[in-house]
């Protein structure tokens, strides 16, 4: 059968906050851009997200965090993927993230961060430019 590569993206909500509207909007936008989006639902631990990403063999993980715990949760997912030898899975994030935290998160391996007001087109464009099917 002819080869047909599709981007697979995991959209996950780590931590305790229950605000998943942003995550769902991003998931739908990525779907409408032709990607396959796996959505985990709320209240995922970093370990659950890492295991899901590896089992689903996604190309990237998008984390949505509104609780303020991004400095802990996002690097935990990056580290967890590394520990499983899955550092080829890109991690990006979105949510209420102060500008001061962004440089630090990027240093810790989060590839891109999208704060409130970002258009979904910008996120799609970033994914297309930076993520390739495995």
């Amino acid at each position: 059968m002819a080869e047909e590569r599709k981007l697979r993206i995991l959209v996950a909500k780590p931590g305790l906050d229950g605000h998943d509207r942003g995550a769902k909007v991003v998931a739908r936008s990525l779907r409408d851009a032709g990607m396959e989006v796996i959505y985990t639902g709320l209240h995922q631990t970093p370990e659950m997200i890492v295991n899901t990403a590896v089992q689903e063999d996604v190309d990237a993980v998008g984390l949505s965090i509104m609780s303020g715990a991004h400095n802990v949760l996002m690097p935990a997912v990056v580290k967890g993927l590394e520990d499983k030898g899955a550092q080829d899975i890109a991690v990006f994030g979105g949510g209420i993230i102060p500008d001061d935290d962004i440089a630090d998160l990027k240093n810790k391996g989060v590839k891109a961060l999208f704060t409130p007001g970002t258009s979904t087109e910008d996120i799609i464009a970033w994914v297309r430019a930076n993520v390739k099917p495995k």
């Binding site: 990525l30 779907r31 409408d32 851009a33 396959e36 796996i38 639902g41 631990t45 659950m48 089992q55």
Partner: peptide, 29 residues
């Protein structure tokens, strides 16, 4: 899959995530 965009939202595993950390379980969408 969406017949229009070719994309998809795969959400079946939302109901199975309690098994996400069990090494004896493998879930694929």
């Amino acid at each position: 899959s969406s017949p229009f965009s070719g994309g998809a939202i795969l959400g079946d595993r939302i109901r199975m995530q309690e098994h996400a950390n069990d090494e004896g379980v493998f879930i694929r969408s």
